[in-house]
Simulated assay, not measured.
Amino acid sequence: MRVRWLWLALLVVALGLALAVQRGWLELPPRWDPRTPLDVRAPPDWLSGWRLWRLRRDPALCAQVLASSQLDYVSQPDSRLGTDCPLRNVVRVKAGEAALNDSFLATCSLAVSYALFEHHGLQPLAREILGQPVTSVDHFGSFACRRIGGGRRWSRHASANALDVGAFRLADGRSISLSGHWQSAGAEARFLRAVRDAACEHFQGVLGPEYDAAHHDHFHLQVGGFGVCR
């Protein structure tokens, strides 16, 4: 009984604090205020997941957050009504901190997740494990109007909410690919596994060679959906 009352008291305190913040009765530093928009370049903290969740439901907020990234992108018009795979709140990403083998279409939330992943995961890991930055990311595409495995469920690619990445080119010209290095021994394989783990912090679904044979040569990175990290 005492435990139950303790949890009830903590809930009342939490709701009271939330109301005080919402009404402006309690001032919080911007970093600790859950209403503060996500800053892509700021180090992640315990509120980053909440802020990422918020922007996925608020197109205007997402556009504001994306502007804080280092992505080179261009906003795209929404698709016409009646198309099989309508696109909403989409941008064309032309480059990030690293170049791309080609531009790709992405919802604003996918673009933000990619920017977070590149800035806080990919590039720091490349410098730590391989001693140099990634200068180019090779991907297999994002938008594809198709269903999963020929079934009834639409793929996240059908809404530009997923990107397939196959290789990373380094400053010295080497290419680290999943098809060529995932099963190898040494720093390249360690780098790819660390990159997979880092991606799981910024995307809701990450599939790679350990998931199934269809992903033997790429990482499937998606926002929304099933929450698998393999």
Score class of each variant (00 low, 15 high):
9 A>H: 11
169 R>H: 04
174 R>M: 08
106 A>M: 04
42 A>E: 12
11 L>W: 13
89 N>C: 13
161 N>V: 15
180 G>M: 12
99 A>I: 09
6 L>G: 02
38 L>N: 00
152 R>T: 10
101 N>T: 00
116 L>Y: 01
169 R>V: 03
186 G>Y: 01
86 P>H: 01
149 G>A: 00
16 G>D: 10
78 D>Y: 07
29 P>G: 00
140 F>H: 14
32 W>T: 13
139 H>Y: 02
99 A>Q: 08
77 P>K: 05
149 G>R: 04
54 R>E: 06
217 D>L: 13
192 L>G: 04
55 L>E: 08
199 A>C: 13
3 V>H: 14
112 V>G: 01
101 N>H: 03
134 V>Y: 00
220 H>I: 13
68 S>R: 06
98 A>K: 03
89 N>M: 13
49 G>I: 12
126 A>R: 02
119 H>Q: 14
38 L>V: 02
205 G>F: 11
21 V>E: 08
201 E>G: 13
116 L>D: 04
66 L>Q: 05
75 S>R: 14
120 H>S: 02
91 V>S: 02
1 M>L: 13
98 A>R: 03
195 V>D: 09
100 L>K: 00
42 A>W: 08
160 A>T: 06
84 D>Y: 15
17 L>Q: 02
82 G>D: 10
208 G>H: 06
5 W>S: 13
184 S>D: 15
57 R>I: 10
